[in-house]
Amino acid sequence: MRIAVAGGRTQADFLIRSLLKKKHKVYVINEDRDHCEYLSSTHEIPVFFGDPSKFFVLRDAKIDNFDVLVALTHQDADNLAICQYAKNCFNVKKTICTVSNPNNAELFKELGVNTVISSTHKIAEYITQAASVENILQGISLDSDKVILTEIIIEENFDCINKTLIDITLPKNTIIGCIIRNSQDMIIPTGKTKILAGDKLLILSDPESAPKIESALS
């Protein structure tokens, strides 16, 4: 895929590295001259120096018909402008940006950005979960909060131990997708699979059911 990375410092560097590993064609547009020099000396990729929220900079970088554009500048409004130019003027198929104000995530999606990532929102989510459930539950939301992946370690005193999956009543829209046993064996369970103490369960569910999973098992 052809991917343009606009703005950003450490994030951009890290992203470029991982995209190149996956054999994507990466183009960089950055308004910090020193950072441009660093990036072009570190990676074998085209680097354009300029403010990516300016029309002529994007035009000169020739991002027409790119598969993806990622906007990583610190200003949310700049990221929106970059993504809208990419989509409306250069026919870029998919636009992704980060926002520092978590409230802008929904707003920017409504204004046409395909994927909006709010690191503040994600971090707050992780901290709340880490603080409230003492390592038993870890929820990760997938596909914009529609699906929750919950991780549960089965303790000695849980009710579900030695039961087969058929005999366990889970909340609705919930499925045990995978069991990790002895920290190494990966089991895709069937109805006849027994749950043992120490198992780690990876469970997919909708957001309403996620908080009920722990009590259904313990």
């Binding site: 929220s53 409004a77 929106l80 809208q84």
Partner: peptide, 16 residues
């Protein structure tokens, strides 16, 4: 003072 901010604001007012 920021064009990009103005674009965002105008779109909020008109489109939202």
């Amino acid at each position: 003072e920021s064009d990009n901010m103005n674009s965002l604001l105008a779109q909020i007012a008109s489109r939202i």
